[in-house]
């Protein structure tokens, strides 16, 4: 099952766990499954159907340009990281 790394600020929602397993073939599905396990988590990452401003998702170490639509493999590592913008502000 994919392993999701929980950002430090969200660990209160996972009882302190920094890594959790969650099923899902896309980032969106994975977040939905996480939400079932840890209510409140989705709202911290997603707003109006998209990743919040400044949040990016990295699957297997690479930041996805398509966010919630990104595919996740059964062995994948998923991270929610700070979005790097070149500064369009």
């Amino acid at each position: 099952m994919p392993v999701v790394f929980i950002p430090a600020l969200l660990r209160p929602l996972t009882g302190g766990a920094s890594q959790v397993e969650a099923a899902g073939e896309t980032v969106r599905a994975l977040i939905d499954n996480l939400e079932a396990q840890y209510p409140g988590l989705r709202e911290r990452l997603v707003d109006q159907g998209r990743l919040r401003p400044n949040v990016s998702v990295a699957v297997d170490g690479e930041v996805s340009p398509i966010g919630l639509l990104e595919s996740v493999g059964p062995e994948s590592e998923v991270h929610f990281v700070h979005a790097i913008s070149g500064g369009s502000r």
Partner: peptide, 20 residues
């Protein structure tokens, strides 16, 4: 804002993040 959560208090600090 701390990863999607607002502090409920007016401040000049727009964002606080933490990596551990």
């Amino acid at each position: 804002t701390e990863l999607g959560k607002k502090s409920g208090k007016v401040s000049n600090v727009a964002v606080h993040f933490r990596h551990v």
